[in-house]
Every structure is written in structure tokens, then in C-alpha cells.
């Protein structure tokens, strides 16, 4: 019963924070400095790890596909498999998971620390709403940066697949065959579906991490506990939302 009440309390806090933060959207032009700083933290500093992981995910996909398809003589379709998998699922999913682990944890740690050491209380007494100064610029930044990161993840993943396909002996298909299949089967709507997913996941991750950070009470131990809770909750939210969002997107734009 207590668990259920905590979950309801958490959901309510996230929704309340969402409403408050969206209400301050009009102040974004006055907070351009903070917005750019958050774009840098969310986008630029996450880019190297996104690129490295995307390359290897694309590579592994091509390897596995090549191994599975070699007996059927369907190796020329590796490009379509890697292209669709990265665009529709793995690109947005992987970027969101990295966002939760790298950016979400940092956001929760920072806000939880500010809460525990009364900096949030100090802001409130100065009539500076934390939702305006600390949450809204982060939400705006993630909306802008998620499509950028996801497109880069897709491109690097596709090239990873191409590299493996042309350099591994048992696959050995040239790049033009790989990209020909990729271009033929991967449509704009597949990429768009992935971008919609990435936007939703990224927004939810940042919102949940901000909410958990701002609700922290206690001392240093609770800061650590909040970070763990924020990352775990974000990962669960990504996976649950992924299923339902995929269902909705398949209904809206069937193949």
C-alpha cells in the first residue's frame, strides 16, 4: 500500500513539475545562456559515447545478420536490416539509455545536492521558481538535442554496419550493395518514427530525473539513492513507453 502511494506521489510530482515548467516556456528567450549551456551538456558532451556505441551496435548487427543470413543467400539484405533496426528502434533507444545514465544521473545528483544543501529553498525565498531556472532550460535543450543525437547515432550505426559488411570475410558485400538495400527499405517515416520516440524518451528522462532530484530529502546518502532511483525509473519508463509508442506509431503509419 505504501509502495503504491509512493508511486502515485511520484507520478503526481512529475506531472505537477511538467505543468509548472511548461508554464515558464515563455521565459526561454530570457534564459538563452542556460539553454545553450544545457544543449552543450546534453548534446555535445554525450556525442562521443553515442558515436562509439552506435558504431559498434551497427557493426554487431551486421555481424549477426551476416552470420544468420549466409545460409539463405540473403546477405545483400544486411543493409536493410541494419538500416531499419537503427532508425526505428536501436538508435533512439540507445541514445535515451545513454542520456539516462550520463545526463539524467548528473541532473539528479546536482538538483538533489542543491535541495539537501538548501539552495533550492534559497531560490524559493528569492521568488525564483526552480522549475523556471533549473528544469525548463533542460527540457528545452533535450527537445533540441535528442533528434540531433539520434540522427548521428543512426548514421554512425549504418556506417558501422557497412564497415563490417565489407571487411569481414564471411559476409563480404560491398558498400554500394549494403547502402542500396538500406536506401530501398529504410524510408523517411522509419527515421521519423525513431525521432518521435527519441523526443518522448529524452523528455521523460529529463523530467523524471529533475523531479526525483528536487524531491530529495536528507543527506549525502539520499543523494546517491535519488540518483539510483532516477536512472532505474528512467530505464523502466523508456522500455514501457517504447512498447506503447511502437504500438501507436504502427497504428498511425502502418508499413
Amino acid at each position: 500500500m505504501k509502495q503504491l502511494r509512493n508511486i502515485c506521489d511520484g507520478v503526481g510530482s512529475v506531472l505537477a513539475l511538467l505543468v509548472r515548467s511548461v508554464g515558464y516556456a515563455g521565459t526561454l528567450p530570457l534564459q538563452l545562456g542556460r539553454f545553450i549551456e544545457q544543449c552543450y551538456l546534453i548534446g555535445y558532451t554525450t556525442l562521443p559515447i553515442v558515436a562509439i556505441l552506435s558504431f559498434f551496435i551497427g557493426s554487431v548487427l551486421a555481424l549477426q545478420a551476416g552470420y544468420s543470413m549466409q545460409d539463405f543467400g540473403a546477405k545483400s539484405f544486411i543493409g536493410s536490416l541494419v538500416g531499419l533496426s537503427m532508425a526505428r528502434e536501436l538508435g533512439p533507444m540507445m541514445v535515451s539509455i545513454l542520456l539516462a545514465g550520463r545526463v539524467g544521473s548528473a541532473i539528479t545528483a546536482e538538483l538533489a545536492s542543491m535541495k539537501v544543501y538548501q539552495e533550492i529553498d534559497a531560490l524559493e525565498t528569492m521568488n525564483i521558481p526552480p522549475a523556471r531556472m533549473l528544469v525548463m532550460p533542460r527540457l528545452a535543450a533535450v527537445i533540441v538535442m535528442m533528434p540531433v543525437l539520434t540522427i548521428i547515432a543512426n548514421l554512425v550505426g549504418w556506417f558501422g554496419g557497412a564497415f563490417v559488411s565489407s571487411h569481414v570475410k564471411f559476409i563480404d558485400i560491398d558498400s554500394s550493395t549494403y547502402f542500396g538495400a538500406l536506401r530501398h527499405y529504410t524510408k523517411f517515416k522509419d527515421v521519423a518514427n525513431g525521432l518521435i520516440k527519441a523526443e518522448v524518451f529524452g523528455f521523460v528522462v529529463v523530467l523524471v530525473c529533475c523531479s526525483i532530484g528536487l524531491r530529495t530529502r536528507g543527506g549525502p546518502r539520499e543523494i546517491g539513492a535519488s540518483v539510483t532511483r532516477a536512472v532505474v525509473t528512467s530505464l523502466i519508463m523508456i522500455l514501457v513507453l517504447d512498447y506503447f509508442l511502437t504500438q501507436v506509431l504502427l497504428l498511425i503509419s502502418p508499413s
Binding site: 530570457l30 529553498d121 534559497a122
Partner: peptide, 29 residues
Amino acid sequence: CIGLVFQAGALFNSLSVYDNLALYLREHR
């Protein structure tokens, strides 16, 4: 207009002393 001096100061650790003082004035333009 109410000011509160917290027991532990509650200064913003990521800001310099100058920016700590200027924050209120900047935020309220």
C-alpha cells in the same frame, strides 16, 4: 520582500560570491 539567511548559508556553490549576490537582481531584471 523577505530575505532569509540560512543557518549553513545556502550559498550557490557553483556561483562566485559576486554571482550569488547578483542572481536575484538578474533573475528579476
